[in-house]
């Protein structure tokens, strides 16, 4: 099933989570292996923290919500095979979590923040469709990132 990835998908890695000082939200920066593609996704503060903790390998004394989802999947012998950012509509991104259970693959609708937080905890690959990359907006993220207060960026970049 895992080999089935269509050529339509681009694999991305989580490059970091930055704090958007204007809105108290977080921006998850996804990049492809060649650093040619960049996808920023705005997420809430709690969602950003859930992703940052997984990136930094921080283990909390009690399981956080996404640790719990992983633990449930482990107990039920279901495996997260991949997550895919599937669509963007009015600046809202959509994602799907692909689960393999008893030889059947299930696709579960999710926010990208949950999908990414879960992918990082299950070492699952993260993909985006070419179509979403094309429609991600034309503004230049690098230029925008440079404008972020350097000190602020350093503190929050992973």
């Amino acid at each position: 099933m895992e080999q089935k990835e269509s050529t339509d998908l681009v694999q991305l890695k989580v490059h970091g989570v930055v704090h958007d000082p204007d809105t108290d939200t977080r921006i998850v920066i996804l990049r492809d292996a060649q650093n040619a593609e960049l996808l920023p996704i705005w997420v809430g503060a709690a969602e950003g923290i859930a992703i940052k903790m997984a990136l930094e390998g921080i283990v909390t004394p009690r399981p956080m919500s996404h640790d719990l989802i992983r633990s449930m999947a482990d107990h039920l012998n279901a495996r997260v095979v991949r997550v895919v950012v599937t669509n963007v509509k009015n600046s809202t991104y959509y994602a799907a979590i692909h689960l393999l259970s008893r030889g059947t693959e299930h696709s579960v609708d999710a926010r990208p923040s949950d999908a990414i937080a879960l992918a990082l905890r299950t070492n699952s690959p993260i993909y985006v469709t070419q179509d979403v990359l094309k429609r991600r907006g034309a503004w230049n993220l690098d230029a925008w990132l440079e404008k972020l207060d350097a000190k602020n960026f350093g503190k929050h970049e992973v």
């Binding site: 969602e47 989802i69 449930m72 279901a78 689960l99 299930h106 579960v108 949950d114």
Partner: peptide
């Protein structure tokens, strides 16, 4: 997140 948790359980 907890809607997702329920959806994952429903899926399997």
């Amino acid at each position: 997140t907890h809607d997702l948790m329920k959806a994952v359980l429903d899926a399997v």
